[in-house]
């Protein structure tokens, strides 16, 4: 890199010119659309939004005090973790099974793959509407088929699991695709050698597949945890305002959305989302430290 120590050659000069010109649209866009907004959100979190968006009043840390001092933020954060606790492990375990099965020579392999991946191209709004109907206590398919009367989405004790199931259903095919490409990178000789040594399929799975797949598994784990912590669509679409289980499944982003856009409490909403940012950054940091410890790299 030229750091002014020597005069740039014509070729270096032209690279610098073209390079800057080529990154300019993206960089300007990112500054306007993302970096200014980060600072602006932080700035707004110190203000109380005035009526009709006029006359914001500086309130210092008061928004943070009421976000972090109130119940709703911590409850919705807890709900978000509860959602992640269903979605992340189950979608990965099922995806792992499916990936191992579909990585063999098996009939209809691509047909199965097509089906499992299908939810990825459906709009979450549509998916959530259908599941809401399936879960309906009176007319829902699930209660009809099993002859039950369960209040799948309005019983606070169950609703979080029901929402989590939709999450698993939506994402399992995606995780499966990533795991299949991870599996395909494992050299075949490892299994052949294990076969000669008399290792069974199950043993091979735990001694070869899992360790060699651990970077892929960890990558999915990391991105899915961060993704699950931002869950909004399912809650918004499945839970009516009048649903008595709402407070037991409401996530942080849902709480943010209602405060910032339903009640137009932007300063308060900004404080929620800044608090969430700090928590997500902290989790990202912890996950990256965990990666060094647990993941097996060749």
């Amino acid at each position: 890199m030229a750091k002014g120590k020597h005069k740039m050659t014509p070729s270096e000069k032209s690279q610098a010119r073209w390079g800057l010109a080529f990154v300019a649209p993206t960089m300007i866009g990112l500054i306007v659309l993302n970096f200014y907004p980060i600072f602006n959100t932080i700035y707004q979190s110190f203000f109380k939004t005035g009526d009709f968006g006029m006359g914001n009043v500086f309130v210092g840390l008061q928004n943070f005090a009421s976000v972090l001092g109130g119940n709703e933020f911590w409850r919705s954060l807890g709900n978000t973790f509860k959602y992640a606790l269903i979605e992340v492990p189950f979608s990965i375990i099922f995806a792992l099974l499916l990936a191992v099965f579909l990585n063999r020579k098996i009939a209809f392999r691509s047909g199965y793959r097509t089906i499992f991946f299908l939810p990825m191209v459906a709009a979450p709004a549509a998916v959530a509407m259908v599941w809401k109907f399936l879960y309906n206590q009176q007319f829902g398919l699930i209660n009809n088929v099993f002859g039950t009367q369960t209040a799948w989405i309005s019983d606070p004790g169950i609703a979080w699991i029901s929402i989590g199931v939709i999450g698993v259903w939506s994402i399992v095919g995606y995780n499966m695709i990533l795991l299949i490409s991870g599996l395909q990178e494992i050299p075949h000789d490892y299994y052949e050698a294990a076969e000669i040594d008399g290792a069974t399929g199950v043993k091979q799975f735990f001694k070869i597949t899992i360790p060699l797949l651990s970077p892929t598994i960890f990558f999915i784990l990391q991105t899915r945890i961060i993704g699950a912590l931002q869950q909004f669509d399912l809650i918004y679409m499945v839970m009516d305002n009048s649903n008595r289980a709402l407070s037991s499944v409401e996530t942080v982003v849902y709480y943010f959305y209602t405060q910032a856009f339903t009640y137009n409490n932007r300063g308060f909403g900004a404080a929620i989302v800044v608090s969430m940012l700090v928590i997500i950054m902290l989790i990202t940091f912890l996950l990256q430290r965990a990666e060094k410890k647990w993941v097996f790299y060749n």
């Binding site: 993302n34 200014y36 959100t41 707004q44 931002q230």
Partner: peptide, 13 residues
């Protein structure tokens, strides 16, 4: 930008 959750951009946007 890739690490930051996108909700943080939404109010100013």
């Amino acid at each position: 930008q890739m690490m930051v959750p996108s909700q943080i951009f939404i109010i100013p946007q």
